[in-house]
Amino acid sequence: MSGEEVPAEVVASLEARAREIRRHIIRMTYAAGSGHPGGSLSATDLLTALYFRELRVDPERPDWPDRDRLVLSKGHAAPALYATLAERGFLPREELLSLRKLGSRLQGHVDRGKLPVIEASTGCLGQGIGMAVGMALDARLSGRPSRVYAVLGDGECQAGPTWEALMAGGHYRLSNLVALLDRNGYETDGSTESILGIEPIADKFRAFRYHTLEIDGHDFRQILAAFAEARRISDGPTAIVARTVKGKGVSFMEGQHAWHGKAPSKAEAERAMGELGGTLDGVVR
């Protein structure tokens, strides 16, 4: 897939932003003492590309009717979304360390009732994609230009209702819908292929009538090219299988399912921050 049109300085800027978001994720999960760093770090580049290059959104008008919608179907990647929203100006950075604390708007899984910039509350898997289908149907019926992006987890692809919703998206030919799979290969207990294999996943999306692209989910040129191609598809939805690394950016978390739902200790968080070019200064658990 070619993406030569994206200038090097744009890529560098996105990479720097993603690194900042990863630093937030480590600080937040350390401060919270729990959370899901692995699947947050794997989805970081996808969310960065979405919020800084792809989504038509405006922090000055978060409820702008014609905005694009992002539904985090894998709601446990909440730290990544909160950090991205903060970097994009939708919430104060200082609020990030309240993650999972009593009274916080930053619930363990994203909660629209507490934080209205969240499009849909998710967490129990296999539901966000269905809500995204409803939103895409509404946009089409209402004549709004909004596009709807649903970020799916790969463990979530074992859930039957995920495929119900995907089937509906294909049946209704929702060309304003993008199913974006964070294919990091691991779920809570181990690798998806050792537990309940979802491959050949791209073929499954194709069979469900999705224009399907496979990319490196950490290569901004490939991510942006896939989004651009999805915009050109007018006769149905697009699925993007983004091959990612669980725990991306922190050496000892990469490819380790143990980091699906566990916070780093102080020593681990300090080491992670060192690798990401930051410090843990000022963050207390």
């Binding site: 409803g134 939103m135 209702p161």
Partner: peptide, 22 residues
């Protein structure tokens, strides 16, 4: 304004929620 979504009651509820959130 009518969608017969087939035998997918769980996802019918999610699609309904999606419409409603709009």
């Amino acid at each position: 304004r009518f969608y017969n979504v087939g035998v997918m009651e769980p996802t019918m509820m999610s699609i309904a929620a999606g419409f409603s959130l709009e």
